[in-house]
Design a binder for these strands. Sequence first.
DNA 1: CGGAGGGGTGTGGTCCGACCAAGGTAGCGC
DNA 2: GCGCTACCTTGGTCGGACCACACCCCTCCG
Lengths: 237, 237
Amino acid sequence: MTDTRRARPATYEMVLEHVEQRLTSGEWRPGDRLPPERELAARLGASRQAVREALRVLQAQGVIRSQVGTGADSGTVVVPAPARALGRVLQLHLAVDSFPVGDVTEARVMLERFSAEAAAGSGRDSASGLLQIRAALEAMDGDLDRAAFGAADAAFHVAIARATGNRLVGELTTAIRESVRGTLLDAMYGDGDWPPLRARLQDEHHAIWSAIADGAGGLAADRIEAHIRAFHGRLGG
Amino acid sequence: MTDTRRARPATYEMVLEHVEQRLTSGEWRPGDRLPPERELAARLGASRQAVREALRVLQAQGVIRSQVGTGADSGTVVVPAPARALGRVLQLHLAVDSFPVGDVTEARVMLERFSAEAAAGSGRDSASGLLQIRAALEAMDGDLDRAAFGAADAAFHVAIARATGNRLVGELTTAIRESVRGTLLDAMYGDGDWPPLRARLQDEHHAIWSAIADGAGGLAADRIEAHIRAFHGRLGG
DNA sequence: CGGAGGGGTGTGGTCCGACCAAGGTAGCGC
DNA sequence: GCGCTACCTTGGTCGGACCACACCCCTCCG
């Protein structure tokens, strides 16, 4: 009895730690396959259930993806998907009153002001980023219904965030937007005449785009802030 | 065989959805106790293992906390802890190259500029917030060792974020800071003479504080940005 | 010789039943 | 009346089994 049971740190946590260690050390990289659950369990001296709980946690954190079968994509694979994971966490805590909706509005303003300014200042460094913003903008024109417009709207804002070249900010923007979808956006699309509202939103988006395209960072930031506040304002205040 | 197996959506996901529904609807609020695993399993017609996996996910998302026993705090309780959960997700994805360290620096700058500006502008609205910043600042003086100083340093920055009154921003700040602890901060504390570096950091912190206390939002933001960049700069280049 | 069918195999998904450990409680005996 | 001991509840863990699915390979028939 050398040790083995002194302040025992939960078996599944041991597994988790082991896997995270492999991920952090770079031994297992995105695209790699983890060992089968059974093998991992045997190797670590844990039950399969403990392994499964650990893997489930990593899955919830958007680091791995599991799939049955024998093929190339089968098994448990390292597949980073931060935005989904972050979005779910934020959404849950929003539901559970960890913070109010108004905080989310402010956070969005902060993030998207930053993004707009950075995108406007990026110049030729990220021509492709600017092109994607424009593509998203054009996809939003026409007489889309609320659902389709909502998706295109999200794509537009995310494209701006991505154009900053800062992936973390892009993920955070996506996540925060995801967290309030359904709570806010869907509700907001629900009242009033649709075509006029859509037209107004389209105008705002075009105005934001032109400021970014002109390299007018401050103006773009101000416009996107006004856009967001108007959007959230109908409900919160 | 009316249905039961048509595009079957994973048992544990069904449990997850059920619990999230209760959380979102407000039926289960922070502080409440969830039913025992066995009862939940029976009620949902799922196995205990499936229930456990779902609860494990929620635990990883920082929404619940489990504990054995019969007492008041025992069982599975709704206990929101967003920062820890967010921090772990970010940390993992940083390790797995979802985004580079430089992105984290930029995100920190964005968040903390926002926080500093907001804290400076808050005025008497949040006198207690300002007091807490000051308390954190004073706790940082003296000849602390690297570890103690690191903790106090974190407390100072988090206090500023909290003073904004925006809990979400506070959580995000804590999370981002948490994600780079160990990777960056510890490494950075490791080289060079300690007392001089500490003195310089103390000076910077005092300068930030005085700007906030004076209500000079822009100045505070600039100072905290310089502070962060200097801090991260030693490693990233 | 070639293609279609079928069985074998590997993988995650699920369930059952059991036991352990920790913490509280109630009841029993001194 | 007090202390101690059984017992109960609850999460934690384990082993074994079976299912569903996807792929692989081998065989058999045209």
